[in-house]
């Protein structure tokens, strides 16, 4: 089955991005396809490569990037939400790309399920 994922919160205040990450991993392990993970609202902060969590904490920015690399995931950061929050190409973490909000509607149409994680 084809999944689309929407992440509405950043990695440090809410559990949403962690839950989404675990869901995506489990879906892939079960042989499903995750077509796209779309980051909206403060979710765009998941793509900030300048974030530096303490060494005893998980680094979700890197974890998303690694997962993308391993499974050829499409991680899309909403351009309007990103610009507001100072996420641009210069500080965009590896594995992410910046695109328009239309990419959210698009994956909603193309995927069998869209699962939203937020606050």
């Amino acid at each position: 089955m084809k999944f689309g994922i929407l992440v509405n919160e950043g990695p440090f205040t809410h559990q949403a991005s962690d839950s989404a990450y675990q869901f995506v991993k489990a879906a892939i392990e079960k042989g499903h396809q995750v077509m796209r993970v779309f980051f909206y609202y403060d979710g765009v902060n998941n793509a900030n490569k300048l974030s530096a969590p303490q060494s005893d904490d998980r680094n979700l920015v890197k974890m998303w990037g690694d997962l993308a690399k391993e499974h050829n995931l499409d991680l899309v950061v909403c351009i309007a939400a990103a610009l507001r929050r100072g996420i641009v190409e210069d500080n965009l973490a590896e594995g992410f790309r910046i695109s328009g909000l239309g990419q959210l509607t698009e994956v909603g149409i193309a995927a069998d399920r869209l699962v939203v994680f937020g606050d």
């Binding site: 089955m1 675990q22 869901f23 991993k25 489990a26 879906a27 079960k30 499903h32 399920r113 699962v115």
Partner: peptide, 11 residues
Amino acid sequence: VDYGGFVDLVV
């Protein structure tokens, strides 16, 4: 359930 169970429920 675990995360795999969550995926199954959505499917």
